[in-house]
Design a protein around this nucleic acid. Structure first.
Lengths: 342, 342
DNA sequence: TCTTTCTTGATGTACGTTGGTCAAATCTGA
DNA sequence: TCAGATTTGACCAACGTACATCAAGAAAGA
């Protein structure tokens, strides 16, 4: 009653083991009619090749390359640490992980790294995408070379990437707006938006979702155009300080990127009253403390550990040509208030 | 450069393959001194047994049994459907899944099912736990027989279960309180709590977390004692209708179990004004519609798909005696507002 | 010292697949 | 119909491990 093997297929199709192997691995020298017969037998028996046995036999090792931004913020440092810890464990599953840190928001640098990965003939590439024509070209080249591509955290539009692993950023932006709007509770005023860069799709999408809900449901709140802080604390501090000086009626702030240490510094210096309501992304030591101190009101968070784990699972499935459950790539946005900090 | 094999261990330890095999699989007839030598060699080489090859050789199939409540609510029906879809895919990984539906909130029935699983000598049992002495005994017997146990969704206290997969229910309760409190925004009044049963730990914990935060942060809001609706719509409807008639100043409702169809029916009938703010658990067709219609204000949700997937991963690791990453079992509570419905 | 018991080694088969080689069978075209 | 090409079959070794058997060696007791 156990699963059928190539032997069973051979017997049913009335051919030799060699022939089944030829069909199974797409070698030539098999007549069409015979191929049909073998395939019919496989279907009839419900044969599925035993991937573990196959990999054992051909000594296969999955080589997966990660290209992630070398940001100075704690989020990207956590990501790198996460990959390190996975790299060791993955060896058990015949998976070899390489990581390269590329300059953030730099399409050219990312594309160059992707080319390098292609030359090394890895089996798959996981990347935190930056939008650029070069990157799209590089991804298309990778896929042309039969290399699987998965985008992580930030997606690529109109690309041929295999899958995306990360949160729904439009929805995250909508959530931020829903919370900020309700927390402001009819108090009119302006809302400041701080982004990292509009070159990364996750930030673009968060902004989109945020503005959708703000316009539709909270017309009393007026949105300022977003400022781009490059996910760096110093720059965020500087920019926000200017904004707070220019507009005295800011009731809410949505920071959809990194560098929140600078955000807090600017707020502490400004000492506005009543203090603006603040929603940010990524739970770090900084943002956790700010939440506890009542300086931030909500933190939206994505679980990097789960994202990396999902990316690896999806990569395996892609490489093994096993159908991928689309739900595997969906990581949920967690919402932290002061009350539910872990 | 590839990982060491038993052959390498044998060579380094200066023993035969057979001896390494004897040590590796705990067979007797090996002198202490020799065992030491072999183990030293394994450590020195960083040898790890190739589980896939080992399983191939011994034709191992993992048999995992799921014991889940046979509730009439959509949550438990979704869970059953989820298991069905996993059962098919799991065969690829040498995993055989069996499922039994047991009467909900019935420790005796659950314990009986666990005993049956033990007799069938499965490799692991995953269960949605009901608190009872019999269940704890049955779990302890399972583990005594070398059968791994994982609790899903609802945990067991003081038990010897291997791991728990599900959301942090105390935290979920705290989140509910944080949201409900802020949404009520200083408007004083009473809060009704509707549970399924206090025999399941998830409901107990949600209540606990909810009350913690309510007492500490929103003293204006007075909590009514929870009513138990057995996760059944009809009963919830009846109980809540009574509550709404008895107290006219209910400003908020927290439903921490199932049967929310009844909750909505009661609310629609009562037509209180201003309408109470409502936070419930589990996103279903019913609760989604209510959210969209503005009858519910927030829905807390756990991703059953991810929970089942995590339970299977943990089970594999437990059975293979591979260290389990505790983060695998942690499923995050999602929060849905009208704005971020998927 | 000899026998008995305990340890160890050598060897073979198996798991389901890959990837060869080589010869035999079958099909093709002239 | 026969040479030549194409298709198929039979066989083998390997991947890393499990498991069984048999014989040889070492240690213990008498």
């Amino acid at each position: 009653m156990s699963r059928p093997t190539v032997h069973d297929v051979a017997r049913v199709a009335n051919v030799s083991l060699s022939t089944v192997d030829r069909v199974l691995n797409g070698r030539d020298g098999v007549r069409q009619a015979t191929q049909q017969r073998v395939r019919a037998a496989m279907k009839q028996l419900g044969y599925e090749r035993d991937i573990m046995a196959a990999n054992l036999s051909r000594k296969r090792v999955y080589r997966i390359h990660f290209a992630i931004p070398d940001g100075p913020n704690s989020f990207m440092r956590n990501l790198a640490a996460e990959l390190d810890s996975h790299a060791r464990l993955a060896l058990r599953d015949r998976t070899e992980i390489s990581v390269s840190l590329v300059p953030p928001f730099d399409g050219r640098a990312l594309a160059a790294d992707l080319r390098r990965a292609r030359e090394q003939a890895v089996d798959g590439v996981v990347m935190v995408a930056t939008e650029s024509a070069e990157v799209r070209q590089a991804v298309s080249d990778l896929r042309g070379a039969g290399i699987q591509v998965v985008t992580l955290i930030s997606d690529l539009s109109a690309s041929a990437r295999g899958h995306f692993v990360g949160i729904d950023n439009v929805s995250a932006g909508r959530t931020a707006a829903g919370l900020l709007g309700r927390f402001c509770q009819g108090r009119p005023g302006r809302i400041a938006i701080i982004a990292g860069s509009m070159l990364v799709r996750d930030h673009v999408e968060r902004r989109l979702g945020f503005e959708q809900v703000m316009h539709a449901e909270f017309p009393d709140l007026q949105l300022l155009p977003p400022v781009e802080g490059g996910d760096e604390a110093a720059r965020v501090d500087e920019l926000l300080t200017n904004v707070l000086q220019d507009c005295r009626d800011i009731v809410g702030i949505y920071s959809l990127g990194g560098g929140n240490r600078g955000l807090r510094a600017a707020l502490d210096r400004a000492k506005s009253s009543p203090r603006p309501l603040v929603v940010v992304h990524e739970l770090t030591d900084q943002s956790r403390a700010a939440l506890q101190d009542g300086v931030f009101d909500a933190v939206l968070q994505q679980d990097i550990h789960k994202e990396v784990a999902s990316a690896l699972i999806i990569m395996r499935n892609l490489i093994e040509a096993v159908p991928v459950d689309p739900r595997t790539g969906i990581i949920h946005t967690e919402i932290f208030l002061r009350d539910n900090l872990p």
